[in-house]
Design a protein around this nucleic acid. Structure first.
Lengths: 313, 313
DNA sequence: TTTTCTTTGACAATGGCTGTACATATGGGT
DNA sequence: ACCCATATGTACAGCCATTGTCAAAGAAAA
């Protein structure tokens, strides 16, 4: 496993922050100057250096403003409250939202991961959700995926195969993580963004990998058409065509014989000319044959992100 | 019910209120000026700031007026009474057809449904989402399910079987509706509520019926453990036991031979003593045998809701 | 050198407020 | 049938505070 990544340590220049939040640089500076929205550190020569949680806050502010709030009203709210408000605005419902208090223990990603597994073993839905919420506050989006959710899925996979977790555990984790990630989708402008279809080929029922892919693509500014798991090759091709997608990404977790490879090979000519990514556990063992067949097989989500950007760039 | 009172503290600008209620800003101001429909607070520079219960009242007023009431007659009623009246009006409208006078979006439930189907045919994700959001403003939660989402799923089912919609359409609709319904779960205090497990038996990949069931149960105050689709009998039973559920609900859409019935029959003794609901399209043709086997088969969601209440009552 | 940042000040767009109209209904009363 | 008062949704003008954007000029990094 990788090491814990506290939310305040890593520092980014304003350009990165701008592209990750979708906010113009000028606006970020204006928000700082006028409202102290965030207080980034400074380098030796006075340049701004933002932490991951700064980025997270700016993201939330952007969504809050897009939802009709006034920046001066919301700028002082803590991250948890912003998150809550943005969720409600998205759903457009009028519900008193109690949300259990979280006493932030400042626990690192590993501790969060361990607690999530423990809660899962106990089938304690509320505790799993709480851990995820806590993690979302503690870590930024990418770190959350990389340090908590991905390892969580890996662990579940392993422990399922060795029999110490059951199908029901996997299902519960899936639904909770799924709704969690869907709830955190950014409501960006997306109308004119390049489109990407994300799904899982026929026979592949596990969609969490695909969900993470969708989250990364969305963060990179794409208009994501998430189609859920278990879609036959012809349907994938039809969706790509109909939607006018500029890329396709599928996630493959389980490899039983060559069935999956055959399915993908059938798919490839149906979407000629469109870059197609294959990711997930099982893609490792198939990488050579897949790349030979014309698929792109990034090793991890970071690589996927940069390859995505090279398409539109 | 362990729900929390609607926050009076947080305050929303008029733009947010307008989009959440579907009322034009001018009209909101007019109702205040002429009838004191609500009395929002004011910010430092005189801008209106509304509370959650203000929004709730405005939504009810809108629906009361849409139901043929005169604004001046109903404007003074307290929220509870408005709620009751609006519910009654809706029940009557379903029977006869008094004409709504306001139709801000120019669309009744049927028109919304038609537009949703059209958008789905075009694979236009944003338009589908837009229609659902409009519908959520237009209609209350139960009405939304009953008059838009349920018919939508039925239509999709039919048109899939006759070949005029493809699998990809069904998948897209599933993911969108799913994330929409999950986003609308409101954060009540569910810690001490009775628990119910909701899922779909092995071989049943269509989860939308189960999602609607979950929404109804959640609305009725249950702590819902939604497990996603395609869960084998032993796993369902294990989940029920581990979670300590007081009820189980499964949704069955497709019937291929007697496979499903066998699966359910295998399940029944594993969860002895716990009420188990079976719903969905395919449950009709199996009703007699299922009830004989000890399952409850409500005809629709309304019946399901009342049977649910009789369990805890 | 070229790119990326920084600060400062100015400017224009946005959106909300009040107040005043205006155009249809709706409902009597004659 | 006719006429009028009232009810109600909508529109706009003029004003103000807020807020996004831009330009200029210089410093630091690549």
């Amino acid at each position: 496993m990788s090491s814990v990544k506290p939310n305040v340590e890593p520092r980014h220049p304003i350009g990165v922050v701008s592209s990750r939040t979708g906010l113009p640089q000028d606006l970020i500076r204006a928000w700082e100057r006028r409202y102290e929205a965030v207080k980034p550190g400074r380098g030796a020569t006075g340049r701004r250096l933002y932490s991951d949680s700064d980025i997270e806050k700016l993201r939330l502010l952007r969504r809050a403003v897009a939802g009709g709030r006034r920046i001066s009203d919301v700028v002082a709210y803590p991250i948890e409250r912003l998150q809550r408000m943005v969720d409600e605005d998205r759903a457009q419902i009028v519900a008193g939202a109690p949300r259990p208090r979280i006493d932030a223990t400042g626990a690192g990603a590993q501790a969060l991961l361990a607690e999530a597994i423990e809660a899962l073993e106990a089938m304690d839905r509320h505790r799993i959700e709480q851990v995820l919420r806590e993690a979302a506050v503690e870590l930024s989006g990418p770190a959350l995926r990389q340090e908590v959710i991905a390892p969580l899925l890996d662990t579940i996979g392993e422990r399922w195969e060795d029999g110490s977790l059951r199908i029901m555990h996997e299902h519960l984790a899936s639904t909770i993580v799924r709704s969690f990630m869907l709830a955190n989708r950014n409501g960006h402008d997306r109308m004119n963004a390049p489109r990407i279809v994300v799904t899982t080929p026929a026979g592949q029922h596990h969609e969490l990998g695909a969900l993470m892919v969708a989250a990364v693509a969305e963060e990179s500014g794409w208009d994501v058409y998430y189609m859920g798991p278990n879609l036959p090759a012809e349907e994938i091709a039809a969706a790509v065509r109909q939607v006018g997608a500029r890329a396709l990404a599928v996630s493959v977790v389980y490899r039983e014989g060559d069935h999956i490879f055959d399915e993908l090979q059938r798919l490839r000519p149906l979407i000629a000319g469109i870059p197609a990514f294959v990711g997930g556990r099982a893609s490792d063992s198939l990488r050579d044959r897949l790349t030979a067949a014309g698929f792109l097989c990034p090793a991890d989500l970071t690589e996927f992100r940069s390859e995505l950007q090279s398409i539109v760039g």
